[in-house]
Design a binder for these strands. Structure first.
Lengths: 159, 159
DNA sequence: CTTTTGGTTCGAAAATGTCAGAACTAAAAG
DNA sequence: CTTTTAGTTCTGACATTTTCGAACCAAAAG
């Protein structure tokens, strides 16, 4: 069982690594996703992952940074420890940022097209690029509407 | 102008690196996106990027691989050279694979939820995870429909 | 059959990333 | 004021990735 869990954590870790994080960062995410209770202290993370304080500190700092925001911590009165957990809100807001992500890549493609037009480069290829951009734009415009639609759906069914 | 172009290529390159490729792979993509004509020979790439034949070869191989398919080449009769270019089709099919990408991450989250239920872990957190998954599922289901909608739109307006 | 062209493949070197240990700090406890 | 706790920061070692140069190969040219 415990062994099973560790293998599972590694798997989650690899997935997270694919998104550009270090192996340890991935393991922290995996560990917190399977934790019970759903939060852990700094020390527990060190022990459980057999990692040094410095590595845990560095990686937690990264995972809690503004731009990533996958982990957060809370404190308890009269207790010096920090309790780290997955930030569900961070995860959600990460979802909300997907359109921006698309948008950035798309802006770059748009600039490329602009450059190609200004410099009279091979029009046929430019046109093909335009088509890709227009699809992206379409998706980007639709995503917030989907989110909206989902909120409505949730309101009707669940709560 | 030429200098401007190089800076631009680096910028495209960084964006591509963020998707998990090497700097040189990113530069190749950038170079081909701004190329005129829209294809280049192996030698031209080596010269333009001041990179070794081996590096260009390795990276082109990667970029042309089944799973990435961002670059392709064509040949001309009576000409031994290969002409490398951006694969618009590969790019398109990459777009088509976005739902699968989402799906994989989502499957992992689903497994995590399953584990948490089976082992009676902190239900509140499990419930929050469920909500994220259900939103993902919703999006995944909708994306192909959006693609469809876009195709229709294109048919009406353009061609 | 030899040379040239257009690459590929195989180590090794250089650049980067990851992690641990030790020294440090700020706040609380004694 | 000293000690302990809960981390942080810095430095260097180790691992991985990226790139290069040299040797190699297959096909075409001479």
């Amino acid at each position: 069982m415990e062994e099973q869990k560790k293998i599972f954590i590694e798997k989650i870790g690899v997935k997270t690594e694919n998104h550009g994080h270090s192996p340890l960062a991935g393991r922290i995410i995996g560990t917190l996703l399977l934790a019970d209770p759903s939060y852990m202290t700094f020390e527990e993370l060190c022990d459980y992952l057999s990692a040094s304080k410095s590595s845990i500190s560095t990686n937690l700092k990264l995972l809690m940074s503004e731009s990533i925001a996958m982990v957060e911590y809370f404190t308890l009165p009269g207790d010096r420890k920090r309790y780290f957990r997955i930030s569900v809100q961070g995860w959600q807001s990460h979802l909300d940022k997907i359109p921006d992500e698309f948008e950035y890549g798309n802006q770059l493609l748009t600039d490329i097209i602009q450059y190609r037009i200004e410099n009279h480069l091979d029009e046929n290829f430019t046109k093909e690029l335009k088509e890709i951009v227009s699809f992206y734009r379409f998706i980007i415009a639709k995503l917030p509407l989907l989110k909206e639609e989902w909120e409505q759906l949730k309101l009707k069914n669940n709560i």
